[in-house]
Design a protein around this nucleic acid. Sequence first.
DNA 1: CGAGACATTGAATTGCCTCAAGATTAGTGG
DNA 2: CCACTAATCTTGAGGCAATTCAATGTCTCG
Lengths: 204, 204
Amino acid sequence: MSRHARTVVYQAGTEVFGDETAITGYSNVVSGVIKLLKVLEDGRQQVVGLKFAPDFMGRLFATDNRLSAEAASLVRLCHVPRAVLESLLPQSRPLERRLMAETLRELDEAREWMVTLGQKSASERVASFLYLIGVHLCPQSSQAPGTIAYELPLTRRDIADFLGLSIETVSRQLTELRRLEIIAIRNKRQITIPDIGRLRGRCG
Amino acid sequence: MSRHARTVVYQAGTEVFGDETAITGYSNVVSGVIKLLKVLEDGRQQVVGLKFAPDFMGRLFATDNRLSAEAASLVRLCHVPRAVLESLLPQSRPLERRLMAETLRELDEAREWMVTLGQKSASERVASFLYLIGVHLCPQSSQAPGTIAYELPLTRRDIADFLGLSIETVSRQLTELRRLEIIAIRNKRQITIPDIGRLRGRCG
DNA sequence: CGAGACATTGAATTGCCTCAAGATTAGTGG
DNA sequence: CCACTAATCTTGAGGCAATTCAATGTCTCG
């Protein structure tokens, strides 16, 4: 498989693939963050998922994409053409299992986020978002309960579209979390979380 | 496989399986509607999916459920013990594919609903819900644009928990749709939709 | 017929949004 | 190095959609 794999780079803000376009292949995220989004006819848009390294992107047995994908930050992908992966599939049970496991994980994440969108307040949503990013960008945070820090891979607009809130509400909630010293922010994007447990406690 | 399958019946409101319990097997919905739900510690709950006949329920390679399931109406299930299906899997490529396809469909539905929860107004959500139920309970509605009618399988509370709204808001929006003669309601549960296209137009 | 669950309606409140004005940051060219 | 601009973000004021609280209405079933 690796013989046919190619590394592809996307600048922040560029489209990786469009809704209802043909599926060209399958990719692994090597670095950076990709947002998956769905848009309504009138322009409202919802970020329905985020992809971090080393997530897998693709869709077996389908020919068309059901959503669009955009690089949130600078992204490097390892891309395999559709035909290659599909020709390998019949021979490789483990590969098929890995794809199934990845899909189930995506489903879990989507449903988890449905709870956030349907039930949580603005402040709980923003806390849940910061926690989610922390878990993905600082995997060690799950065990060691110390300080973590990261650079936000999303703009305020992206965050708002992910959380189903307005930009202004996101900004106000971030300010409030900073006032409470649950987070610190430098240069809009640099987030420090001194106590991940305290943040977790505000996720609802 | 059919040798080991058993039909199981659940009364409306009873639990089919609980969150974080062991997976006992796999089932097909024969009739009725099942709601999948996630609850927060403080009791808020979100319906994260609905299962109609002939949907499949189960989770490969996992030992525990990640959510709970409850019969919304009287439900009949065709249940296969875990060990049976998993022993059949290595022999049956088509079965494995069917499970993968079902999981991908669930993922699509979840993401579609994220858009509803994140972006739509109360009136659009209620319209989207009535449309969704119509499509599932009256499959012919997709082609023929005539009148459709069905019995709502969910209580107002269930609907509210699915839509991320309060019961009262759901009720008010139903009343408004009735006033506009987009739907008719008899006995709280009997819904008639004279023109599914008009309803579709209010889904956002 | 009466009790209890479920649903509707109304009135008041509130959380988030919209609109509008500044502040901050990054990038550009003199 | 320092304006200058454009983009992004923050903050404030006011409005509105959805919630909460409370009361009334409707259906089901003993």
